[in-house]
Computed example of a mutant assay.
Amino acid sequence: MTDTVDSVLLAAAPAGPPGDPGPLPAGRADAVVFAVADAERSAARYRAALGLCCTAYAGPETGEPETVSYVLTGPGTRIVLTSPVRATGPRGRELAAHLARYGDGVLDLAVSVPDVYYAYDYVVDRGALSLAEPYETRDRFGSVVLATIAVPGGSRHTLVDRANYAGPYLPGYEPYDPHGPGGLR
Rank of each mutant, 00 (worst) to 15 (best):
A128H: 06
L95F: 07
H98S: 12
G154V: 02
Y57C: 05
D20F: 01
G154R: 05
Y102E: 12
V5P: 00
G172A: 10
V124M: 09
S143M: 10
L107W: 09
A119D: 03
P60Y: 01
G127Y: 06
V116C: 05
D30Y: 14
G27T: 02
V123P: 00
V33E: 15
G27R: 02
V36D: 04
G63C: 09
D3W: 01
F141Q: 12
G74W: 03
G63M: 05
T55W: 01
T2F: 03
P23E: 07
A96S: 15
L52H: 01
P65D: 11
G16Y: 05
P21T: 01
D121G: 06
A43H: 02
V85W: 09
L10Y: 13
P25D: 12
T158G: 04
G89E: 12
L159G: 06
A166R: 14
L9Y: 05
E133W: 00
R45W: 05
V33W: 04
P134F: 04
R47M: 07
A58K: 02
V32Y: 05
V80I: 07
A12Q: 14
G154N: 06
D161A: 09
L184K: 07
T67I: 13
T137K: 11
P21E: 08
D6L: 05
P90W: 09
P60T: 12
C53E: 14
A87D: 15
L52I: 00
A87K: 08
P60C: 09
P23F: 03
T62N: 05
D38Y: 00
G92H: 07
G153S: 12
Y118T: 10
E174I: 00
V80P: 00
